[in-house]
Simulated scan of single mutants.
Amino acid sequence: MQAMDIALICKALGDSNRLKIVEMLSDGEKCGCKLLEAFEITQPTLSHHMKILCDCGLVSARKEGKWTHYSISEETLAGFQDFISKLNCSKDGDCACQ
Rank of each mutant, 00 (worst) to 15 (best):
G32K: 06
I41E: 06
A12W: 02
L35A: 07
K86I: 04
Y70N: 08
T76V: 15
E75Y: 13
R18L: 13
D55M: 02
I9W: 03
E37P: 10
E74M: 02
L77D: 09
C54F: 11
C95T: 05
F80L: 08
V59M: 04
Q98V: 14
M50A: 10
K34L: 11
H69L: 02
F80I: 05
K66R: 09
D5M: 07
E40M: 13
A96K: 00
E75K: 12
Q81E: 12
M50G: 01
I52L: 06
L46K: 08
Q43K: 12
C95M: 07
R62P: 05
L25K: 09
V59C: 09
I6F: 08
M1N: 07
G79Y: 00
I9Q: 02
G32Y: 10
C33Q: 13
Q43M: 02
C89V: 11
L58W: 00
H48N: 03
S26A: 01
L8W: 02
C97T: 14
N17W: 02
E23F: 14
S26F: 10
I21W: 10
L13S: 07
C89N: 12
F39N: 09
D15N: 05
K51F: 11
K91Q: 06
C54D: 11
P44I: 11
C33R: 12
Y70R: 01
I9V: 06
D55Q: 03
G93S: 08
D92C: 05
L53D: 03
I41M: 08
A78V: 11
L58F: 09
C97I: 10
K51M: 15
K63A: 09
A78L: 04
R18T: 01
G93Y: 03
A61Y: 00
W67Y: 11
I9G: 02
T42L: 01
A61S: 12
M1A: 09
D82F: 03
